[in-house]
Design a protein around this nucleic acid. Structure first.
Lengths: 254, 254
DNA sequence: ACGATCGTTGCAGAGTTTGCAACGCATCGG
DNA sequence: CCGATGCGTTGCAAACTCTGCAACGATCGT
């Protein structure tokens, strides 16, 4: 809608790939160098980009601190955290909390496994939306028409042989998930890692977040992990209860 | 330099304070509602802001994931992390890693204390620049003229009775820090918390980051904490060595 | 049912942004 | 040592984008 802002914002993901000099930025944006310079200057004034010793630009500190504030403002996170910690103490495995926003699902909290073998994931990282157990729960709650639209639009990368292959399979899986009220990912993202997940609901019953317990095959089998399901669901319900009790605003897709 | 972008970017810190509706954003920016709307729309398209169910705007997910990428690209962080973990295992206290950028010092990594008493701090959060031990190290490395300019410009909030009171005291402290090659914060930020910090240097000898060990009085006295200094310095030196060995770009102030 | 509040859209004027060309500066090769 | 090349930077006038207004529609509360 606003050309200038549009261009300026496009610079940020570009710099996320790594530092770039003026010429490179101008090229990638398809604008004159002087234009790119002025955009970068404005971004710089706000601390969103930073100029290295070699004059190249990279993402700046304000971006990091802003993101930090953004996460601290998420009410679900605040409420859920102690529950996640407690669950982690009980089961020992990695516990995740995720929310859905604009066709992306991302982790907003994590408590690491106490076992030496840890899985790779980071708070703030978008999750594999077509296979992750938490993603299934979050998407399954969308109204039918939206859901169909989203499913068609997605890519279905075959991380493993058990990854969701296409929109049809995804919708079918989501229907199942919606009905049973919980979800799993059995080696769909990484061959040796399984997850069990449960939804966290707001006062109006809509799913506002999802939490999961993940563990590699080498520690527990999928079947053993599934025995934790009741505990995971109870934890999620406890968070739901606390969250809907004093909900200031509902976190739902637009 | 660019009015439109300037305004658009100003919206983000504003939203970091909490969700706001269109009217509020327009007021704070001092522009017409229609103008604010178009800016918000552009930010929305890029995922930087998100629209809640109640139509209010808040910071979006792309901001969080971008910040995540920004941090993952920091070479110092990657290299330092395992060292921080090891140090934490040895001493048990909270370990921090911080960098300096544009008159701000912020934590880019943290390993939590193993003691039940934990201090409040978060990755991405700007640190109290006038009192934190890591901040002293990072600033002490600036060229004399820049340093003076920065010191004059800063605020000196009196967190405790032992906080740095003014520019003069700060410069004096920095001179000491520069000479001895390490720094402390003894109750300057929070009455009961002490820190010991050491610098991490790049190939050219400039300080690129600083690390610290922090612990509350109730666990160890300041004197006991100081006995850890040699270990902290050794760890910092190890990181420095590894970092300067294969430095792609130097992270230095412009 | 009515008024108030808030978000949204088309429009024309105003102002900002854009790309060009020229400059300064450093680096590199002859 | 000097010219060539590449980079970031600045003034300028034309062009296009953005701005604020006013009017509309929807939603909410009384």
């Amino acid at each position: 809608m606003s050309q200038t802002v549009d261009r300026a914002l496009s610079i940020l993901p570009l710099l996320a790939e790594g530092p770039a000099d003026l010429g490179r930025v101008a090229d990638r944006l398809g604008v004159h160098k002087s234009t790119a310079l002025r955009l970068l200057r404005t971004l710089h004034e706000h601390g969103f980009v930073y100029r290295q010793a070699d004059q190249r630009y990279r993402l700046g500190a304000r971006l990091i601190s802003l993101a930090q504030e953004a996460m601290e403002n998420l009410d679900v996170r605040e409420i859920a955290h102690p529950h996640l910690v407690r669950l982690n103490e009980q089961v020992g495995h990695t516990v995740h909390l995720a929310v859905h926003e604009e066709d992306e699902v991302l982790y907003i909290d994590k408590v690491d496994s106490r076992y030496p073998v840890r899985m790779y994931s980071r708070i703030g990282k978008p999750v594999a939306i077509t296979v992750a157990a938490v993603a299934k729960l979050l998407l399954a709650d969308l109204p039918e028409n939206e859901l169909r639209a989203v499913a068609e639009k997605l890519d279905y990368p075959l991380y493993t042989a058990r990854s969701t292959p296409n929109a049809e399979g995804f919708l079918k899986e989501l229907a199942k998930v919606r009905e049973q009220g919980w979800a799993t990912d059995l080696g769909g993202h990484e061959e040796s890692i399984n997850c069990v997940a449960a939804p966290i609901r707001g006062a109006d019953g809509r799913v506002v977040a999802a939490m999961s317990v993940s563990a590699p095959n080498v520690v527990v089998t999928a079947d053993e992990l599934l025995t934790l399901l009741p505990l995971v669901r109870r934890t999620a319900d406890a968070i739901s209860g606390e969250y809907s009790g004093r909900t200031p605003v509902k976190e739902v897709t637009a």
